[in-house]
Design a binder for these strands. Structure first.
Length: 114
DNA sequence: CGGTTGACTTTCG
DNA sequence: GCGAAAGCCAACC
């Protein structure tokens, strides 16, 4: 009868986020809300961002953007946050529209029918 | 256990 | 069309 070590499946959320982000193909992007929705938490977009805060190296966090395809990040990467991400995405082949990404063309979606 | 912050989203001005 | 404020949920201190 050991008490629950407060570690049943709490990391699942983070791992799910990492898994999705890691699955994003090159030249594609996704919104925090989209990830949260895929995890079953459409109102937990913030936690997705929090999960990204602990994103391990090798994770294309740059392909994760905010709603509308616009870059959020305000205090990341030594202040070169949004500017850096935009540059990286441009190298990926993503097209920008005045600081926003063409979601209709780059918003990654699972091969599932809606 | 409680208060604050946060890689968000949406709505009002 | 852009800017600021409110709302929601979980983690951190």
């Amino acid at each position: 009868m050991e008490q629950i070590p407060t570690l049943p499946p709490p990391e699942s959320f983070f791992l799910e986020v990492y898994r999705i982000v890691r699955k994003i193909p090159r030249g594609k992007v996704i919104t925090y809300g989209q990830i949260a929705t895929l995890l079953g938490a459409p109102h937990q977009a913030r936690q997705v961002g929090w999960a990204m805060h602990g994103c391990p190296a090798g994770l294309p966090w740059q392909r994760v953007v905010g709603a509308g395809g616009r870059i959020l990040i305000n205090s990341l990467s030594s202040g070169e946050g949004p500017h850096l991400q935009r540059k990286l995405l441009e190298m990926e082949g993503v097209k920008f529209h005045g600081g926003k990404i063409d979601m209709e063309l780059h918003q990654w979606r699972l091969s599932r029918k809606e």
